[in-house]
Design a protein around this nucleic acid. Structure first.
Length: 861
DNA sequence: TGCCCTAGGATTTTT
DNA sequence: TCCTAGGGCA
């Protein structure tokens, strides 16, 4: 049960908006997930069939959360709803429509970045392109860019002007050819192929257009051209497209996301309704003011300003560290102190940085303080070598055309089969038109292979055949254990007594628990089916028929309990639609990661209800038209092996983040600002606030890139609910080199009166005068961050001889906040020289000024 | 074939 | 600094 009274007026308008395009500009923390979920619930309550709704997110996490929240609101009434990521939805569609995709078989696998790289490298080798001039990553980025812009090989070749592009286009052609030969898609293909499928098969498009009459897209500002096209193709008929996003949070431009998609939505849909969610429920006033001020420096944005009814809260705290160690030390010490003082759990804290390389030192100091933490670094669980090895076995068994995976396993564990044998096998397979398993079977006929290698090949062949034959239906865990056992993988690791091998064993054990979980889920679904209960697909059908028999999903008095709803929603309001629970189980609402055994309905089934869905919507709440009721579609025939393994592989490929943030874990979170998008934490530390780090040196030359960095800063700031610390290190050891960086310009874009340079939880400084150190000015001497109490350190330093004041003129330090009669308030970012003649660099509201201490007429504030 | 060493490169990365 | 890919050698 849900109540519209839980919503503010704008939110409510967004939820109640019925038909037609809707653009929701949702600022950070403005409750957009709530709006989306309520909107879905409301549509269903008003008679829209759940299977006519498609909700798209970017991350699995977001999809899962939305699914759960809808389920909480609706219970089983949501069965048949699709809530999924772009990629899951498209893969699901591609598998269903595989017959329309010449060149691909249903068992296609999805290649991740590593797989892509190895395919591309083989292309470069084949084309005899020098990897120095044509770095694989660069080419791959170019190819990805083409795909995101829906530019097929032919167009790329046609348009390529420069030499690099021409070569890249050549590589692109070969790369695509190889992917197809391997029966593999990369991530970008998934979207591009779906668009192609729709464009070339009007009947297929027709079917999905008709099915997805209500489309909701989250994070619309992050869509790339391909995704944009996909959505707009699907929405073209009914135009019930609701997009939610925030141009200020567009931080994936470098990956092909085009913020214009959201900015030009009103052009695409002139009849659109635009709503702005500007009330923030997350952060304090001070944090929001700072975030607004920073992002306000961007030129290219839709005007808006977040506000909140929350308290003003603490001021932002600004810390000038000597170097990265001092910064890390400060962070760890602050966290410990806040834990002690305020009894906060570890998970209240997040330390956000621009690049993963910054995490190491932070870990070191957290470890030293004994503070539990979790790092969300670049290395994903499924990218680990041992996991990829086992997955490669599964992939070859599932899709024997997969040469990349075959190449990976051929000599792992060691079988004495090296590069040269691999090349011969691949060549033989190619010439004979065989897949890898078939080629292995014929190892005797592969020319130029020595007897020893031949025996090894045949033995591998037998092993794989055995695994394939005896693998029980759907039991991935057994299969994986067999693989680990029979290939000697376990033995290999156990023979190796290094800690790394130990870690690998542990990772594989973790992997086995993932497979076990998957098996259990599948078994559960199977049981439900055999006991006459229903899966997602069937649920829609049954619902539809039930509705036709006068069992309307529309308002009834029997509400579904709102027990799980946030904020203790009350539903006593008069106009609150409630939903009748019919007790139909929902295994996973719209979970696209189920085993590939789902049936495809005859298009006619749902098609029959297509006559006048709008009518149904507007005129017949609770009186839905009966469907054709042709009974449940038969599941597609697919051999059990593929069904089980394929489903699992797909899940792994598309949901590659079991390291995900678990609510239960109590640890300080370390992650990049990008990864933090969509999350919130009571206390946030932003570290490495330096020119060249953040904004990153790569962005300093281009204004658009800088604006994206600024948006990232906005995202980072708005993660904080209560407290935020901004840290700057005057000196930083990065990549083995010491850098001296100026403070980030974003510092100076925060109004100075919102920032403190001393944490109020600390005792006041001993003396009047300055507390902040002056790293660049060299005031720190030899104290390298060993001390726990920062300010005492400063005190002792001062007494060691660094003068705090001179007779004539004050001595300034980096981080001092000063006021100039003309320029206003600012922060000192560098001090050269001493005393009256010191040259001060001061940032005033975005402007950098150099002043001589003696004449500057600065006052402190 | 397999191991060891060195040189070079190193944002961000929802899928 | 630290990782990894590739070259050279046993």
């Amino acid at each position: 049960m849900y109540s519209l009274a839980d919503l503010n007026p704008v939110q409510r308008e967004a939820v109640e908006h019925r038909a037609g395009p809707l653009l929701i500009l949702a600022g950070a923390g403005s409750g957009k997930t709530r709006v989306l979920t309520y909107r879905i619930a409301h549509l269903i309550a008003r008679g829209v069939a759940p299977w006519n709704i498609l909700a798209i997110t970017f991350t699995n996490k977001a999809a899962k959360e939305m699914r759960q929240r809808v389920e909480t609101l609706l219970g089983s009434a949501g069965a048949g709803l699709w809530v999924s990521t772009f990629h899951s939805a498209c893969v699901r569609i591609l598998r269903r429509e595989i017959d329309h995709l010449p060149g691909y078989a249903r068992s296609f696998v999805i290649y991740d970045a590593g797989d892509q790289l190895s395919v591309l490298k083989s292309c470069l080798k084949e084309l005899d392109l020098d990897e120095k001039k044509f770095p694989a990553r660069g080419i791959l980025a170019q190819i990805s860019d083409w795909k995101n812009r829906l530019c097929p090989v032919e167009d790329a070749e046609g348009k390529a002007a420069e030499y690099f592009e021409k070569m890249a286009a050549k590589a692109y052609r070969l790369y695509q050819k190889k992917l197809m030969a391997n029966n593999a898609l990369d991530f970008d293909d998934i979207i591009m192929l779906a668009v192609e499928l729709f464009r070339q098969n009007p009947t297929v498009l027709d079917y999905y257009r008709d099915r997805f009459r209500y489309i909701l897209v989250d994070e619309y500002q992050d869509t790339n051209h391909a995704q944009y096209t996909l959505v707009n193709l699907l929405a073209a008929r009914y135009r019930n497209l609701c997009v939610v996003g925030d141009d200020d949070q567009a931080v994936y431009g470098w990956r092909g996301a085009d913020v214009q998609n959201i900015l030009a939505f009103e052009r695409d849909y002139p009849e659109t309704m635009v709503l702005k969610l500007e009330q923030n429920y997350r952060s304090t006033k001070h944090i929001l003011q700072a975030a607004n001020a920073v992002v306000g420096h961007n030129q290219d944005r839709k005007a808006k300003s977040l506000w909140t009814e929350n308290q003003s809260g603490d001021l932002l705290i600004h810390y000038v560290a000597e170097d990265e160690r001092d910064e890390a030390r400060y962070v760890a010490e602050r966290i410990q102190r806040l834990k002690d003082r305020e009894g906060r759990p570890n998970k209240d804290f997040a330390v956000l940085y621009r690049s993963n390389a910054q995490s190491r030192i932070l870990e070191e100091y957290l470890l030293r303080e004994g503070i539990p933490y979790r790092v969300f670094s670049g290395m994903k669980f499924y990218e680990r070598m041992e996991i990829k090895d086992i997955l490669a076995y599964l992939r070859v068994l599932h899709n024997p055309a997969d040469r990349v995976s075959f190449s990976r396993i051929l000599n792992v564990p060691k079988r004495g089969l090296g590069e040269s044998v691999l090349a011969k096998v691949l060549l033989y397979a190619e010439e004979q038109g065989l897949d890898m398993l078939a080629a292995l079977r014929e190892a005797e006929y592969i020319p130029g292979v020595r007897p020893q290698a031949r025996r090894a090949l045949l033995s591998l062949s037998r092993l794989l055949e055995e695994l394939r034959e005896q693998s029980p239906e759907g039991e991935i865990t057994d299969l994986v254990e067999e693989i680990l056992d029979k290939t000697g993988y376990w033995a290999m690791l156990k023979a190796d007594n290094t800690p790394e091998a130990q870690a690998r064993v542990e990772n594989l054990q973790e992997f086995l628990s993932v497979t076990a979980e998957y098996d259990a889920k599948i078994a559960e679904e199977r049981d439900e089916r055999t006991t006459g209960e229903i899966d997602e697909r069937a649920a829609g059908e049954i619902d539809e028929r039930a509705a036709g028999e006068g069992n309307p999903p529309a308002p009834t008095s029997a509400g579904i309990s709102s027990s799980g709803a946030e904020n203790g929603l009350s539903s006593e309001t008069g106009d609150t639609p409630t939903l009748g629970g019919r007790g139909l189980p929902v295994p996973e609402v719209g979970d696209t990661t189920m085993a590939g055994s789902e049936g495809r309905p005859a298009p006619g089934v749902e098609g029959t209800s297509s006559d006048g869905s709008e009518d149904r919507l507007s005129s017949s709440e609770g009186n839905m038209a009966p469907s054709g009721g042709q009974g449940l579609p038969a599941p597609e025939v697919e051999d059990t092996f593929s069904a089980g393994v394929g489903g699992f592989l797909e899940q792994v490929a598309l949901v590659a983040d079991i390291d995900q943030l678990n609510e239960g874990d109590d640890g300080v979170v370390l992650m990049t600002m990008h990864s933090a998008k969509g999350l919130e934490f009571p206390v946030v530390f932003l570290v490495g606030m330096e020119e060249g780090i953040f904004p990153s040196s790569h962005s300093l030359l281009a204004e658009t890139a800088l604006e994206e960095e600024r948006r990232l800063c906005y995202v980072a700031l708005t993660r904080a609910k209560e407290k935020i610390y901004l840290c700057y290190a005057g000196q930083r050891l990065l990549y083995g080199r010491i850098q001296n960086n100026l403070p980030s310009r974003f510092f100076s874009e925060v109004p100075p009166d919102l920032m403190l340079d001393r944490d109020p939880i600390d005792p006041p400084p001993q003396r009047q005068g300055r507390t902040s150190g002056a790293p660049r000015g060299g005031g720190f001497g030899g104290s390298t961050g060993g001390g726990r109490k920062k300010y005492r350190d400063y005190g002792s330093l001062a007494s060691e001889g660094t003068p705090l004041t001179t007779g004539k003129s004050e001595t300034y330090h980096v981080g001092d906040k000063v006021e100039h009669e003309k320029f206003g308030r600012g922060i000192i970012v560098s001090v050269k020289g001493e005393g009256a003649s010191a040259i001060l660099t001061v940032v005033f509201d975005g402007q950098l000024k150099q002043l001589i201490s003696e004449y500057a007429k600065l006052t402190r504030f």
